[in-house]
Each structure stands twice: as structure tokens, then as C-alpha cells.
Amino acid sequence: MAGIADLGVGIGWRPEIDLTVERLPGVDFVEVVAENLHIGHLPESVTLLLDRGVPVLPHAVSLSLGGAEEVDLARVEHLGAVAEAVGAPLVSDHVCFVRAGGLDSGHLMPVPRTRDALDVLVANVRTAQRNLPVPLALENVAALLEWPDGELTEGQFLAELVERTDCWLLVDVANLYANARNIGTDPGRFLDEIPLERLAYVHVAGGVEHGEVYHDTHAHAVLPEVLELLDELCSRVNPPGVLLERDDNYPSDTEIASELAAIRAVVDKKRD
């Protein structure tokens, strides 16, 4: 498929901030959490945004594509149905596992960066792709712990994933920052190693330091260091889109608008 269309600057649509998203100036696109939408009963606010021509991209959190279990096709089909209901050009989920051994972590857990884990991920991604009506982008997650015996860097792992599945990448610079802080990922090397021509768009989010680790909470302000990583990324490639995620502890409209403006300033910065 050809490149991803220009998306601009966007924000994650959430029911708690539906009115905010509707009235904020300069929201070029939104993302919806696919698992929270019901086909045939789209929230009025999402319909309104669609009527305005705002692209709505479904983002999934439950496919567990990095998991050892076979892909749950009902979840993939739901994601595809949401994509069709909102006319989305692509969908996304994460390079992670959610469930294992009969337990549900309720979270996006990192996968071991081993050849074996990559083989399983590749097989799962291909299964998902075969059952989706639009291209799939996959996002790097934030880790609090490191698996032992890693054979690849995170950048190499993602590069090989793209090469073998032809998926797109959704690069979360806050997650990249978290991994740099928590598990020693080298952000420059990460950006060197991933195929930036397969970048679908970028996530930016806030978080907080807690003890020795950085928690990617989506409930705090975006750190300047995260915007610096966005700047670093933009110095290498002009990202098709950049989206702010805020999931809790919602600030005023003014604060959200200023975070979007700060993102836009980085994206629009004149570069040599």
C-alpha cells in the first residue's frame, strides 16, 4: 500500500472529554479505543466528528498479539468492524501480550525480545492482518521490567517485525522515554533501527516519576523530555500524524489545548 495520508495533530477521544475534543481548535484526527465501541451504537460525539470529516482511527488494546495463545479472532473481527463503521484507513494495537496461563494482566505487557517470541508475534500479526479490512499498525509499549535473555534491541525487534509482516509502526515517544528510563533503551539507536518509512503516526502522553521508575500514566502532563524525543523523531522523518493520549485525571480544556499546541510547535518547527 502507498504511504499513510497526512493526519496532522490529534487527540485520543474518550467519553469523559467528548465535548472538549469537539470544541478544541486544531484537532485534525482522533483515535477511539476499539474495545469500548459497539457497532451500531457509536457515541454521538464520534458521529459528529465523522460528520465534520475528522478521521477516526480505531486503537485496540486487547488483541495480545505478542501472546503465546492463538489470536482471538472475535477480537480481530470487532476491530475490523469498528474500522468499517468509522471508515478508518488503518487500525492499531500493541507489541505486547495481555493474557497468559489463564490470567488477564489488564495491561500491555512487554514481550521477550527473543527470536522465538518474534516468530510467534509474526505469526499472530499475519493472522490478524488476514482478518482485517485495513492495514495494521503496531505500537511499542512502555515497560517497567526487562525480560532476561533478550537477543535483539527493541529497534531491531520492531524492524524485523515490519520486514516480515509489512505492518506499520505507531511510535509512542512517551513509551520510548519510559523504556530509556526504566530498562535502558537507547532512544537514538531505537530511532536509527526502526524503518521510519513505515511510520503510521506517533503517540505522545504524560507520565510521572515514582521511585526509581517512570510510569506512563496518561494521567499527568507531557514531560519536556518526551517532547524532545518527538523533536528527535521529527528531525529524522516528517511523521504523518501525532496524537496526544490522555486517559485519566483530565485537566482543563486550556491545558489540553496547550499540550496540543506544544506538540504542533515541535511538528511545525523549521528544520534544516
Binding site: 505487557m109 521477550p112 510467534v120 505469526a123
Partner: peptide, 18 residues
């Protein structure tokens, strides 16, 4: 590979959740 990964992931979640 899938079986190996299954036991690794199950052991981690068992430590984290149970």
C-alpha cells in the same frame, strides 16, 4: 517457540498477579 513463550508468559503473570 509458542510453547516456550507460553510457559514464560504464564510464569511472569503468575508472579505478578498471583
Amino acid at each position: 517457540a509458542r510453547e516456550k513463550l507460553a510457559s514464560q508468559q504464564a510464569a511472569l503473570l503468575n508472579a505478578l498477579l498471583a
